[in-house]
Design a protein around this nucleic acid. Structure first.
Length: 537
DNA sequence: CGACGGGACGC
DNA sequence: CGACGGGACGC
């Protein structure tokens, strides 16, 4: 536990190769899927010969999962044999293979608000990819939620994306495999499920060439990738290898700064998945009513830059230009067809960008008729709060789009101010210091703050973004269903700084009170050294 | 088919 | 006024 506790789970690949391993070729081939932290070519201790194994550690599980998905069964330049790529066991587990080890990379354990239904849970997580099941554990007697549950994906990449991007209050972890016992033997009979043959043609998918090493017993070639996949319909890890990007969900591709703008543009059609299932994106755009207007009028939050806005609007196919007056926050964007423009308006109006504020998108050349959606888009303080005036579909759309942005290396959460020690964030009335990393969850608590949001609660991600900026933040949360809560800091100085800056300010439209917390209600006194425990053991 | 180096570091 | 969160899977 000394050096290990900050490495994310499932971010290391175990790769089977032949001898004669060239490390650089691996760095080159795998580097495009993410940030490589370590490459280790395993050699025999005495003879110094390759053992045919390479470990590659990525900075995140999603990068490793994507690399596995894309590289398994492929040939690395300079190496004759196709490689096999697996998520490595933790060092602790050694080489033992759990019969249900896929659960370690497909299934998440989650803390779930008691009020949330399984349907809501599923909807919340299916933005990251296809879900096998979403379950909430309930009390056997009264059916009440126990406050936790599981979501299982079909692909490790999607599980990792969910883990890394879902609201932190879910406290997501990769689930430990746990099987009632003895059941699901048929797991081992069905194999295949995903194969290259089911991949549609097109630039985002590798050609129909089948990897040379698919193994002899892949089962029938044609297999539909329907939505009704059963519980135990796949088994070996091979199933999610080698399958290219997922189809009916957008795939985010490489993550963060490794994602080039070109990659982004290549994935234009995937944004069409924002809220539609079934139709192809182009068809869908064609089906938009011809408003007769190709030009959009955009009202952007002050501080948003030309570059970011252009990147956002170019996610919708057909952008001709996007010109922002950074002084006024007014932009005009033009698309090649009225349908594209209508599509862009539909997708981006009300879009939360950056965190805590929204874009307003109108047709530029027709009379401005405010509609319901616009009205709700403007009161951002309601976003994400139960009873919000936003329809669920809209929230989903916004979340999905924000996710795409993040994966594209655009940070939707902040807009830099000219001074580079503080920045303007549109959810807050004052300039704030730049975000700082959180302290590990097991850090020792130095100071607790009591927070009140008046009159209503503020989404947790916004609180986190605000309170982390003073450093050493361990956690911040509101009590469920309440407008008050706590922030925990690992140092008193940082906590006091948070009070001095944030107390009395406005966050997402709510007035904030930030005070030193009183000691917890009925906590066992850890004072002094009196340990006159009468209990044995 | 198939599994683990080096360096790590607060007292 | 506004005070204390949740954590592993059916018998």
């Amino acid at each position: 536990m000394a050096y290990n506790h900050n490495v994310p789970e499932n971010c290391r690949l175990f790769i089977l190769v032949g001898k004669g391993i060239k490390e650089d070729a691996f760095r080159e081939a795998f580097g495009k899927y993410g940030k490589i932290e370590d490459v280790w070519v395993v050699k025999d201790r005495r003879s110094n010969e390759d053992k045919g194994v390479v470990y590659i550690t990525f900075s995140k599980a999603s990068e490793a999962a994507l690399a596995m998905q894309e590289m398994n069964g492929r040939v690395v330049p300079g190496h004759p044999k196709p490689i096999k790529v697996l998520i490595a066991n933790s060092k602790r587990d050694g080489s033992v293979r759990d019969p249900h080890e896929d659960e370690k990379i497909l299934r998440l354990f989650l803390i779930i608000p008691k009020s949330m239904s399984e349907d809501e849970l599923r909807r919340e997580f299916e933005q990251y990819g296809d879900i096998d099941y979403a379950t909430i554990l309930r009390d056997k007697n009264n059916g009440e939620s126990k406050g936790f549950g599981y979501v299982k994906f079909f692909r490790p990449y999607h599980a990792a994306l969910a883990l890394e991007n879902c609201d932190r209050s879910f406290k997501p972890k990769f689930a430990e495999p746990k099987m009632p016992r003895g059941d699901r033997d048929n797991d081992y009979e069905m194999d295949y499920q995903y194969s290259r043959e089911t991949r549609p043609p097109g630039p985002f998918f590798r050609g129909p060439d089948r990897g040379p090493d698919r193994g002899p017993d892949r089962g029938p070639d044609r297999h539909e990738r329907g939505t009704k996949r059963g519980f135990s319909e796949y088994s070996g890890r091979d199933d999610y290898h080698d399958d290219g990007p997922p189809r009916s969900r957008f795939s985010h591709g490489p993550v963060g700064q490794h994602h080039s703008l070109d990659d982004l543009e290549q994935r234009n059609d995937e944004i069409a998945d924002l809220n539609l299932v079934g139709e192809g994106p182009m068809e869908m755009i064609q089906n938009y009513a011809n408003s007769g207007c190709q030009r959009l009028h955009v009202t952007a939050p002050l501080g948003l830059t030309q570059q970011y806005l252009t990147r956002l609007f170019s996610l919708i196919p057909g952008l001709e230009y996007c010109d922002l007056n950074e002084a006024t926050g007014i932009a005009y964007a033009r698309y090649t067809t009225p349908q594209c423009a209508a599509y862009a308006k539909d997708k981006l109006d009300g879009f939360e960008y950056p965190l805590g504020s929204r874009l307003i998108v109108r047709f530029a050349d027709v009379p401005n008729v405010p509609d319901l959606k616009t009205a709700s888009a403007m009161n951002f303080e309601n976003y994400g709060i139960p009873g919000s005036s936003l329809e669920r579909d809209e929230c989903d759309t916004i979340r999905k789009a924000a996710l795409i942005l993040e994966k594209a290396g655009i940070n939707p959460d902040r807009v830099l101010a000219s001074d580079n020690s503080v920045e303007r964030v549109t959810y807050c009335n004052i300039l704030l210091p730049l975000p700082k990393p959180l302290s590990p969850e097991d850090s020792s608590l130095a100071q607790r703050l009591f927070i009140v949001c008046q009159p209503a609660a503020v989404p947790e991600r916004i609180l986190r973004d605000a309170f982390c900026r003073f450093g050493d933040l361990i956690d911040v949360y509101l009590l469920s269903g309440r407008n008050y809560g706590y922030a925990k800091y690992a140092s008193k100085e940082c906590a006091m700084k948070a009070i001095s800056v944030l107390h009395g300010q406005s966050i997402a439209g709510q007035r904030l009170k930030v005070l030193e917390a009183e000691p917890p209600k009925d906590e066992n006194r850890r004072e002094g050294r009196d340990r006159h425990d009468s209990h044995s053991e």
